[in-house]
Amino acid sequence: MPEAIGVSGLRVRRGGRVVVDDVSFTAPFGGVLAVLGPNGAGKSSLLKALAGVVPFEGDIRLSGRRARGLRADERARLAAYVPQQSELRSPLTVASVVAQGRYAHHIGRVRAASADEDAVARALRLTDTAPLASRSFPALSHGERQRVLLARAIATEARILLLDEPTSALDVGHALRLYALLRRLAADGYCVVVVLHPLAEALDWTDAAVLMDRGRIRQQGETRDVIRPGAVESIYDVRLVPGGALGFRLPIDPDALGGGAPS
């Protein structure tokens, strides 16, 4: 698969402190990459650097283009970011929030309204948020907001999706449906980078992983090779217990949920 993200010598400073230090990795289109590590490892700061939310040193390439040379609208059409939570407080409807994902397509050009409507409708359908379309965004639960923010990212039509702990406020059913959606998007050629805490979920749903600690990558590769005794046990100060957690699965074929695979 072609390279979606290329990172070399990345460093991020927050409040005068280095929180991401000399990080290098690549991620292809057509896969889901997990960013793992304990609290304070630098995972969210790494994702924000990829999204252009925080300043960085080093080099980031998105779809082969240097991030430093991109205008904001160009970057938005390449990569879409889903934060842990939204600061949006205006009483916009869910449909209006998702439609914000179309702004980058209107800068310096005319865009057919039908294309925007189709993109918004598709995003609402895929994230199971169409029933919420007329509701006020601030009135939603945190879990519902997370699904709406993902819908906004999908509406951008960016092929790189950056998600920061997207399942942290979701019940088990919606979490499984979200993971199934991310897998379908990857199968359709997206690059999905997702910050996760549950290692079992990373094993079940992601292709590759980077394991961070204190701002650096300690292990990277296929997820099943990263989540092994050794680095995981030393970084988290735990013992891995195979089969030691509850398991869940969707009751039917996940492709039958949410209207099928994206087109």
Rank of each mutant, 00 (worst) to 15 (best):
E74Y: 04
Q84C: 06
E165P: 01
P83I: 08
V98S: 00
R147I: 11
A151W: 06
L163A: 05
T127S: 11
D73Y: 11
E117N: 14
L126S: 01
D116Y: 01
A115I: 02
E165Y: 05
P166C: 07
Q100V: 04
Y81A: 06
I107V: 15
R147C: 02
L161A: 03
T129L: 09
A123H: 04
V120F: 10
L161Q: 13
Q100G: 14
A115E: 09
V97N: 05
H105A: 04
S141E: 08
A151M: 04
H106T: 15
V110F: 10
Q146V: 07
V97W: 06
V97M: 03
L140E: 01
E87Q: 12
Y81G: 07
A123S: 12
S114W: 13
A72K: 11
V110P: 03
A121P: 00
R147T: 01
D118Y: 12
V120Q: 01
P91N: 10
A155Q: 08
V82L: 02
G101T: 04
R111P: 00
A104W: 06
S96M: 13
R152P: 01
D128K: 09
E157T: 15
A158W: 04
L92Q: 00
A130P: 06
R135P: 00
R102G: 03
R122K: 14
T93L: 00
D116R: 04
L124E: 06
H142K: 11
D118G: 06
R159K: 15
Y103V: 13
S86Y: 04
P138K: 09
L162K: 10
V120I: 14
S114N: 02
S86E: 02
L162Q: 05
A79R: 00
A113I: 09
E157R: 14
E165K: 10
A133C: 13
L78C: 09
D118H: 14
F137E: 01
Q85T: 14
R145L: 02
V98K: 03
I107P: 00
S96E: 15
A155R: 06
A151Y: 00
A119V: 04
L149N: 11
H142N: 07
L88Q: 11
Q85R: 15
S168W: 08
T129C: 14
Q100T: 14
Q84F: 05
L161R: 13
R152F: 07
R89K: 14
Q100M: 15
S136M: 10
D73C: 11
D128L: 14
E74L: 05
H106P: 00
Q100C: 14
D128S: 15
G101W: 04
A139S: 15
I160D: 06
V82K: 06
I160E: 11
V148T: 02
E117S: 15
A95Y: 05
Q85N: 15
R102Y: 00
S114Y: 01
V82G: 05
R89I: 05
S134K: 11
S136C: 10
E165F: 03
D164T: 13
L162T: 06
D128C: 08
R75A: 15
R77P: 07
T167K: 09
S141C: 09
V120W: 08
Q100H: 15
P83N: 03
P131V: 10
S141R: 08
R75V: 02
A99V: 00
R75I: 02
G143E: 12
S86L: 04
P83V: 13
Y103I: 12
D118C: 09
A79C: 04
A153L: 04
A104M: 07
A139K: 13
G101V: 01
R75K: 13
S86F: 01
